[in-house]
Design a protein around this nucleic acid. Sequence first.
DNA 1: TTCGCTATTCGGCGTTGCTAAGTACTGGTA
DNA 2: TACCAGTACTTAGCAACGCCGAATAGCGAA
Lengths: 109, 109
Amino acid sequence: MGKLVTEMLKGTLEGIVLAILSIRPAYGYEITARLRDQGFADIAEGTIYALLVRFERRGLVDVTKVPSEKGPPRKVYSLNAHGREYLEEFWRTWSFLAERLEQLRKGGN
Amino acid sequence: MGKLVTEMLKGTLEGIVLAILSIRPAYGYEITARLRDQGFADIAEGTIYALLVRFERRGLVDVTKVPSEKGPPRKVYSLNAHGREYLEEFWRTWSFLAERLEQLRKGGN
DNA sequence: TTCGCTATTCGGCGTTGCTAAGTACTGGTA
DNA sequence: TACCAGTACTTAGCAACGCCGAATAGCGAA
């Protein structure tokens, strides 16, 4: 795993982070840490921040700046209505892909 | 579906085509048609050809030119040992990703 | 001759994730 | 005091991938 997972993350990482935000609001550093805990050991921090900026620009999230006791202020992102809608579309697309692949794995149609 | 699936295909299309080739050898035009039948209506032909060239360059497939009754000769690709190995690694990576996503879909840990 | 289907190639584009470096704030330690 | 580690975010440049559009080529039918 390495290059392979990197390519697969294109398009899915977006959904992963959206799903994390759908549970409860979070900020970049926190999301990165949570991903590491869940086995995504090699996801680059910069990648997450760039992703969040994209979410904001596309209007999928709302942002609030919250002061931190130990460092610069946090930018807390929360999923808004548009974001939830988009997340559902993501799940539909994901399901489609996952089904095709599952079929292929079982000897192919 | 459209842009979303396009991004998700990055990295997975590779595995999909590898899996198709693992069933039996095939040529580009044929693969494209089979994909369309399986619901991937919007995969660009050029994409498949480029992918096959990449497979060849990486030594995952063997190639034979076979004359066609109705058009230019076909380049038939068959998975070799290296390709099968790589396909298995693909499945491992895919499983990892799919499990994480399934967990996230169910309320997320 | 022209059209349509088969079959492959090529150049340029946009999106994505990674790398690497930098900024900024806090608390602990030598 | 000076320095370092941890927290938190930003930015610029790169490589890989899939898409788009056009071109080439062979064959059979209208």
